[in-house]
Structures are given as C-alpha cells and as structure tokens.
C-alpha cells in the first residue's frame, strides 16, 4: 500500500497546474480581498480584523480546493478507464486506493494552507502566537479530511462529463455558503441561519476560534464530525456498490 501512496504523492507534487491552482490561487485571492483592508477594522461579530479573518477563510478554501477538486475527478476518471479494476487484481486492499488518494490530496493541501499564512504574515502583518500558527495549521489540515471524504464520494458517485460540474457546484456552494470568500455576517439573516450548518462554515470557524485564542466551539466540531461520518459512510457505500458492479 505504501508504494501506491508514495506514487500518488509524487504524482500530486508533480502536477504543476493543480499545484498552482490550489497553492497559489488561495493566497492570491487573499491578497485581492484583504489587500486594501486596514488592520484595525473588525469583521462584524468576530472580533478579528479582515486580514486575520480572511487568512483562515482562504487557508480553508485552499485546503478545500486541494482535497475536493483533485480527487473527485481523478477517481471518476480512473474508475472509468479501468485503473481501479486493474488495482483490484493486485494484493492492494480495497481501502488502499482511497487512502493513497487522500494522502495525495493532503500533501497538496498542506502547502496551500502554509502559503496563505506566510503571505498574510508577510504582506498584511498578521501576528499570532506560535501555538496559534501550529494549531491553525493542524486544525485546518485535519479538518480538510472531511472534504477529502466528500471528494472520494463524488468520485464514486459521478462519472464522465458529470463529475466536473457536480464537483464545481458543490465546491462553489460550500465556499460561498461557508463564508470562505466573504464573511457570512454580510448575508441576510435567513441565509445566515442556514450557513451555520454548512460544514465549510464550521470548518472556518475552527480556525477563527483559534485566532481568538479560544477552543473551537463544540457545535462546529460536532457539525464537522457528523459530515465526516456522512461523507465517509457515503464514500464507503458507493465504493462497495462500484466494486460489485465493476
């Protein structure tokens, strides 16, 4: 299994286009949104300045991009071209493929998080304690597993031409509703009452709590855990279904 994981990692790091998209793009978007913001105005209801707030949003967005976009499309493609079948003729256990894919995504999501942090600290002078930087990195990286599971589920659910639009709709939906592009406090009330339950909102809230030197809220963690169980369970179910009909 390790050999496949190693190869998936090598391939992920070799894919320049995808690396650029998921590593550079969130950092660039951060500069675009937070570029002109001063460092004193607080984002409504958060007690954080816009750059600090958006740093976590964009790091989360970058991680989401890395784990969701890459895997769903690749899994769907490899199911279709028969690579998944070929792997089933090896000693590789069934979970090995999904684990390798997740590892491949995680190795891209980490730099995409770190690059946003570095840009925020260097350009927008975001200052946090050392433990906060570490906790942020860890929380956002670990939280991205929820969406990695979603990516796998989509990869087993959709196929062919459908996988890209489906992924994109979910990707943009999660990004916008979760407040990764703009604080949800700017949304109308009725929408805010919905976005509270969106997993990406809980995901970004993890980081924002850490930035305010708080422990992440139980509700956010609970939401993420529930969605993780849902996505991973769905992925496992779809995987088994796919195996039977393959």
């Amino acid at each position: 299994m390790n050999s496949l994981i190693k190869l998936e990692l090598a391939r992920a790091l070799r894919n320049r286009k995808f690396l650029f998209f998921s590593v550079i793009y969130p950092a660039a978007l951060f500069l675009l949104i937070a570029g002109k913001a001063d460092s004193t105005t607080k984002v409504d209801g958060s007690g954080l300045t816009l750059p600090t707030y958006m740093m976590v949003s964009m790091a989360s967005f970058g991680a989401l991009t890395a784990v969701l976009l890459g895997n769903s499309e690749r899994i769907a493609k490899e199911r279709e071209n028969g690579w998944v079948r070929q792997l089933r003729l090896t000693t590789l256990p069934g979970r090995g493929y999904v684990l390798a894919k997740t590892a491949g995504a995680a190795v891209v999501s980490l730099p995409s998080i770190v690059v946003v942090f570095v840009v925020a600290a260097a350009v927008k002078h975001v200052r946090l304690d050392a433990w906060q930087w570490l906790a942020l990195t860890g929380a956002i990286w670990a939280g991205s597993l929820v969406f990695a599971a979603l990516g796998v589920a989509i990869g087993y659910l959709a196929s062919g031409d459908a996988v890209r639009p489906i992924t994109m709709i979910i990707y943009f939906g999660l990004s916008i509703l979760g407040g990764l592009w703009m604080p949800t406090t700017t949304f109308p009330d009725w929408l805010q009452s919905i976005t509270k339950w969106v997993p990406t909102h809980a995901y970004a809230a993890l980081g924002q709590a850490i930035e305010q030197s708080e422990a992440p809220h139980t509700q956010d963690i609970a939401i993420l855990v529930v969605f993780f169980v849902l996505f991973a369970g769905g992925a496992a179910w779809l995987y088994r279904k796919d195996t039977l009909k393959a």
Partner: peptide, 19 residues
C-alpha cells in the same frame, strides 16, 4: 490473487496516468 498466484491483463484494465 493475494497469494500472488495470478497475474492478469484486462481488456478494460486502465493505467494510472501522469506517472
């Protein structure tokens, strides 16, 4: 297969790309 006794080449067997 797990015992390594079977090697197979499928008509529908794809290959991992970009490696």
């Amino acid at each position: 297969i797990v015992a390594g006794r079977v090697g197979a080449m499928l008509q529908s067997g794809g290959l991992m790309e970009e490696v």
